[in-house]
């Protein structure tokens, strides 16, 4: 484990570099193939509307995977993430156009948990089209 951020260098409120992740229909087809989740609500507009959705929506796990990149890119070693959880509050709606959707992710250190283990809690905020798409999004990260 080789985190590049030192426990001594962060305080509650320390902000991680924010990121924006584009999501197009092609993104979802790729994710379906890689993850094995072929639920048609993630690629078939007709089916999505039939079950009451406004359009095709992103896999919740795609959003979860995107959001944690803010943490793993910050800390350097992805293995520094010892715990990670989210609640799926709103879907990321992905229209069939060149732009698709965007997931905007920010994060900050919420608390220093354990001086001996050098762990901190990072709280994440993920929005798409101005709506929060993840709730209770938190990671526990072991720093250097």
């Amino acid at each position: 484990m080789a985190a590049t951020i030192a426990y001594a260098d962060v305080e509650p409120g320390t902000e991680l570099p924010a990121r924006t992740f584009p999501v197009r229909r092609e993104t979802l087809v790729r994710y379906a193939g890689a993850s094995g989740d072929f639920n048609p609500i993630h690629w078939n507009e007709r089916f999505a509307r039939e079950v009451g959705l406004p359009d095709v929506i992103a896999h919740g796990m795609f959003t979860m995977a995107s959001a944690v990149r803010v943490v793993t890119d910050w800390v350097g070693d992805p293995a520094a993430v010892v715990e990670y959880g989210v609640r799926f509050t709103k879907p990321v709606v992905v229209p069939d156009d060149a732009e698709g959707a965007r997931i905007e992710v920010s994060a900050k250190v919420a608390a220093k948990l354990d001086d001996a283990a050098r762990t901190v809690r990072v709280d994440l905020t993920a929005t798409s089209a101005g709506r929060k798409v993840l709730g209770m999004a938190r990671a526990v990260v072991r720093l250097a």
Partner: peptide
């Protein structure tokens, strides 16, 4: 069925 919450706790990657 929809996915409500997801959480992981890692011993190692």
């Amino acid at each position: 069925v929809v996915h409500g919450d997801q959480r992981f706790r890692y011993t190692r990657p």
